[in-house]
Design a binder for these strands. Structure first.
Ligand code: FES
Ligand code: FES
Lengths: 163, 163
DNA sequence: TATATGCCGGATGAAAAATATCCGCAATGA
DNA sequence: TCATTGCGGATATTTTTCATCCGGCATATA
């Protein structure tokens, strides 16, 4: 069971966008350059974030991406859903209805206990991620290591942001 | 993020094995026929269950599979791990160390907050599945619909089991 | 011992999904 | 007008999953 690597890219992109000065936009190409990932592919993921309403996009010269909401109101779950899809990981194919002793459809009014257990576990997973906001992530990242780092990022942003 | 469909097969296979009379074994081909799934492929998953110590296998005439432990001591998590692998779904590629403002390795002594959040959610998922025993699944399945069903399964097993 | 049964593991192939790129189009500001 | 930038679709490449097959070995039964 593996999650697409685009989720890591998108989450870090959102962290970067959270440091973007108000009223400016950051082009997808700049976000890709910052993280050293393929620009065309990251652009796809940014489009997914835009469709999900997590970031807003402005086309044309002086355009780019910025967060659609304050970081407190963006959760990791929303980012992962936008990029990786929100379908359940466990897919029940109603195997209990197949074979020589298969249950008849009218006997299967309630979901199979196995599927129910997996889906309950996925709900626990989702509940956990819904409780982690982008703001909390940023706080855990910027607080620590070296104040110069934040300044360098800010300088890079001012050079590469539009607006 | 999707889980292999072999997990559903293996879980149902374990449910079936839990109804197997003591001292008998059920060949992989019989398990496949019971669920109407490709025999050769299910055999692979059964081998994985055997390697994980969830079922034991007996070769030769009158051989087959049976549970290695009582159903109370088998969890859905163990089955999923055996069949689908136990690697974390979220893979951190240390993207924070890349690009023009990348952090130096010596700054990255602790795991990135994003990866930590995803892995914490996966722990919640695992904790949930570890709490569901095969015995609980069987109870939720056999209690309900129709007593004749259980008898039919038993009869099928007696016809197809070895031992 | 001979034979049939049945698991084991590796090799192989087909199908699907993830990864990655490109291009034409529309929108926007200079 | 013209350069810039996001949008969406089409396409190509790589990786993973799904599935089958076969030779080898172990075991029970006759
Ligand atoms: S029938 Fe799909 S999990 Fe039981
Ligand atoms: S560097 Fe991998 S999740 Fe942050």
């Amino acid at each position: 069971m593996r999650m697409g690597e685009g989720v890591e890219w998108a989450a870090h992109a959102c962290v970067l966008l959270s440091a973007l000065p108000d009223g400016t936009g950051l082009p997808a190409a700049a976000i890709a350059a910052y993280h050293d990932v393929p620009p065309a592919y990251l652009a796809k993921h940014m489009q997914a974030l835009a469709r999900a309403g997590i970031v807003t996009s402005a086309r044309g010269a002086a355009g780019g991406y910025r967060l659609a909401r304050p970081p407190q109101e963006i959760s990791l779950m929303q980012i992962a859903d936008a990029v990786d899809g929100s379908e359940p990981a466990f897919r029940c194919t109603e195997i209990r209805q197949r074979g020589p002793c298969g249950a008849k459809p009218e006997e299967c009014t309630k979901t199979c206990g196995i599927a129910a257990a997996f889906w309950a576990a996925e709900r626990a997973y989702r509940r956990q991620l819904e409780g982690v906001s982008l703001a909390a992530i940023v706080a855990s990242l910027t607080g620590r290591p070296d104040p110069g780092k934040f300044a360098r990022v800010k300088a890079w942003l001012e050079q590469n942001a539009n607006g």
